[in-house]
Amino acid sequence: MGRVRDAVLARRSRPKVTDAAPSDAELALLLDAASRVADHAALAPWRVIALRGDARARLGDALVAASGLEGAAADKLAAKPLRAPLLLAIVAAPRPHPKVPEWEQEACAAGVAHLLELLLDDAGWGVMWRTGPYTRHAEVARSHGLGDHERLMGWLYVGGRIEAERPPRRATEPAAARLIVLD
């Protein structure tokens, strides 16, 4: 039918990746394409923060601080951001606007995240969108340097693909069952 549809149907979340990661220049090109998402009033109410190296460990520390966990459970939580060499924090940064409510601006940020996930997958990278119970915790927001008006939407975990490990397509009910037509 079309290249975009084929890319969407081929996309799979990749929970395990190698240590390879796209360069900042490659990310900029992909983000430029993802920024074409529907955006009422062209507010661009989002930003993306790339976490590499020690920034991932600092995120792990923030997750532990937010959780209050100790011992082995804290160590396990602290290690989660180390699962991929690159984490892309998706941030909703809504702006006051008389015609564009905050929920719509958050939807725009989520759209950027999804398009970026598709573009990374299409470019040959392993990617998985992750969230969790501490995504909107103040300690995690501080670790990203978020402003009071900004909200973390989650992270795209990005790395090299492990080709031998192609996750199967998840079983879902046919999408047509979710289509309701009103005349």
Rank of each mutant, 00 (worst) to 15 (best):
A93S: 10
A55D: 05
L179R: 14
L115G: 06
A107E: 10
M128T: 14
P98R: 06
T131N: 04
D39H: 08
D32P: 01
K76V: 00
L29W: 05
A66T: 03
A177M: 02
D61R: 05
A123S: 14
G71Q: 04
E173K: 11
W46K: 10
G60H: 02
E102C: 02
G159H: 03
A113T: 01
L88Y: 11
E150Y: 09
L115C: 06
V127K: 09
A79N: 08
T18M: 00
R166S: 08
A34K: 07
A84V: 12
L115S: 12
A38E: 06
A171M: 08
A78W: 03
K76G: 00
I49W: 09
W103S: 07
A65S: 12
L31N: 07
K76T: 01
W46I: 12
A66K: 03
E106K: 11
L31E: 09
P96A: 14
T135G: 11
P167S: 06
A65R: 15
A21G: 01
A7F: 05
V4Y: 01
R52K: 08
M153P: 00
T131S: 14
V48N: 05
K99S: 02
R136Y: 10
E165H: 14
R169A: 14
A50W: 11
R178P: 01
R170K: 15
A62S: 10
R3M: 08
A28R: 11
L120I: 14
L120Q: 12
A113K: 02
W103V: 11
E150W: 09
A7T: 08
E102N: 04
R151Q: 13
P98F: 04
R142Q: 13
P22E: 10
A66S: 07
R47P: 15
R11G: 01
A66L: 02
K76P: 00
E102R: 14
I90V: 15
L51M: 13
L63Q: 07
R58I: 03
G154E: 04
R58V: 11
A21D: 01
R161W: 00
M1F: 00
A141H: 13
E173L: 12
P168C: 01
L63A: 08
E106F: 07
R130N: 07
R12E: 12
L43I: 14
A73I: 01
R3F: 08
P85L: 07
L27Y: 05
L115Q: 12
A175H: 10
A72M: 01
D121Y: 13
G68S: 07
V158Q: 04
G154Q: 03
Y134G: 04
R56I: 06
A28Q: 06
V127Y: 07
S13N: 11
K16N: 10
L182Q: 05
A34I: 11
E26P: 00
D32E: 14
W46P: 09
A138P: 15
P94W: 15
H144C: 01
A164G: 15
V140S: 14
R166N: 04
M153I: 14
V64K: 06
A25Q: 15
G132N: 05
P94F: 15
A89Y: 09
L88G: 09
K16L: 15
M1N: 01
G111N: 02
R170W: 09
E139K: 15
G60A: 05
R3Q: 12
S13E: 08
R5V: 07
S143A: 14
G159D: 03
R130H: 07
G124M: 08
R95A: 07
E173Y: 05
T131Y: 05
A110R: 07
A41I: 08
T172G: 10
V112W: 04
L9W: 10
P168A: 13
G145H: 10
R52F: 02
